[in-house]
Design a protein around this nucleic acid. Sequence first.
DNA 1: ACCCCGATCGTA
DNA 2: ACGATCGGGGTT
Length: 180
Amino acid sequence: MSRMTREFFNRDTLKVAQELIGKLLIFKNHTGIITETEAYMGFDDPASHAFAGKTKRSQIMFGPPGFSYIYLIYGMYYCLNFVTEKEEYPAAVLIRGLLIQNHEKQQYIHLDGPGKICRHLGITINENGQDIITHPEFYVAPTRKKMDYTAQTRVGISKGKDKLWRFLVKKDQLLHQLKL
DNA sequence: ACCCCGATCGTA
DNA sequence: ACGATCGGGGTT
């Protein structure tokens, strides 16, 4: 199966975040369509974990593109990101929505929220720092589907609220996928 | 050692 | 509207 290359992630983070919408996320025996993303990038984004500089946690964001960045939030939930842009420029895309089909394939489940996605797929801190360009069972793959999306302000942050760096599929597009 | 807070979620 | 739950990062 074809997959996204390192060059796909080695680009402007807003572009990557937008183009990840509608792509497939594969993790072990799970496959889902990405329906929502958020961009965190650069040295001047107060909502980014990299805003405080390079630390033990954020150093992965300063590394090369195409690696997973996973962190624990609120002591309970893991969030999945993919590192973007060239090395030394801190940036990543948070995966916030995933459309998956259950084993009976009769219906879709929409995982709306980064914590729900990791909980359902079984992604923990153990998957932090994985190379999703070469990993055999953890990567992003292209699809034929083209899904329209909208830009909104990012969720759950106290600073950087002005930026429209959240991207999510339009409601009718999602309903179409859900076959409702 | 201590303190504050957080890229969330389920329940009320 | 609120509590759960704990690691990260800054300060003492």
